[in-house]
Design a binder for these strands. Structure first.
Lengths: 162, 162
DNA sequence: CGCCAAATGTTGACGCGTCAACCAACGCTG
DNA sequence: CAGCGTTGGTTGACGCGTCAACATTTGGCG
């Protein structure tokens, strides 16, 4: 089969830029969060859905589904956040296996204070740099890339059926 | 000052897609490398410039500059790769502080075997999904984003001068 | 020359993420 | 209802990355 061997200049340029942005932008936003609010990106990711949930409580399973994280990752992160007083673990009344994650007052305060500066950083570093035309093209293009990515959507089994 | 408060639909869509791609694409390529070649992304990043260097040797400092990594990160990664026999450390004749990183035969074999499948994955997951027009627009756009990012280029001090 | 700041590396601690092992509860089916 | 596969969650090991502390060397400047 005729395979494409290497990247030409145009491809290499786009790919290089993509690599760079994936690394640098993530790092820049992480730094901004840590410095301005004392939160890690992982903290922020979980605090957002928790703060929007009624009562600030979510079942770990649902929280995981919402952010696309696997069980173990949620569990580890909740453990760390629990130690810092951002959330608390409670037991689940309907399902004895379950574990409920409860946003604490400190947790809510943290996310409320962190959000505006974070959104501003997203604008400053990304949205404001692009023209309207670019934004309109990039959004759908990246969605297409995302859709074709090998899901690995958490547990999801591969192909084989026994 | 008039600050932009939140993201509108178009902005949110593009940002969501960007977030998703940054996480998923990185993860997909990492998985591909590990499964097909037993190399991590970090391994690959260092093996490429090493394999292109004359003699397969580079000073740690220069290697770090080439890939944009700080000293400690290089050192830790080299330590791990050394344990697996991909590289070896040697002392630097011109500068007693320095440390030379030498690609081993096993290291060269690993990168030679890994590269084609990795490039193919980059095509499959990213380049092939985009039209020529999109590629031409996205490349320069992302380069602009990259240029405006707060460099943090290794040690580089911020503003203050005593 | 003698001193001191800057450069180069290494190390240890800690946060984050994945993987695999494990445990407990659930719920279906015979 | 007894058994058993599935689901939900936790834990420990290990790789990766950052930060801060440290040691050594270099290089310039009095």
């Amino acid at each position: 089969m005729p395979e494409p061997p290497w990247l030409d200049d145009r491809e290499a340029r786009a790919w290089r830029a993509m690599i760079g942005v994936m690394q640098q932008l993530t790092a820049a936003l992480e730094r901004q969060l840590v410095q301005d609010a004392g939160l890690s990106g992982a903290d922020y990711t979980l605090l957002v859905p928790l703060s929007e949930a009624p009562g600030g409580v979510l079942r770990a399973r649902d929280l995981g589904r919402m952010v696309g994280w696997e069980r173990s990752r949620i569990s580890h992160q909740i453990t760390r956040m629990q130690k810092r007083g951002l959330v608390a673990r409670e037991e689940c009344s309907e399902d004895a296996r379950g574990s409920m994650v409860q946003l604490t007052d400190a947790g809510r305060a943290a996310i409320v204070e962190a959000a505006p500066a974070h959104v501003a950083a997203v604008r400053r570093y990304f949205l404001d740099v692009l023209t309207d035309a670019e934004l309109d093209l990039i959004g759908p293009a990246l969605e297409r890339v995302l859709d074709r990515l090998p899901d690995n959507g958490d547990d999801r089994a591969r192909g084989e059926r026994p």
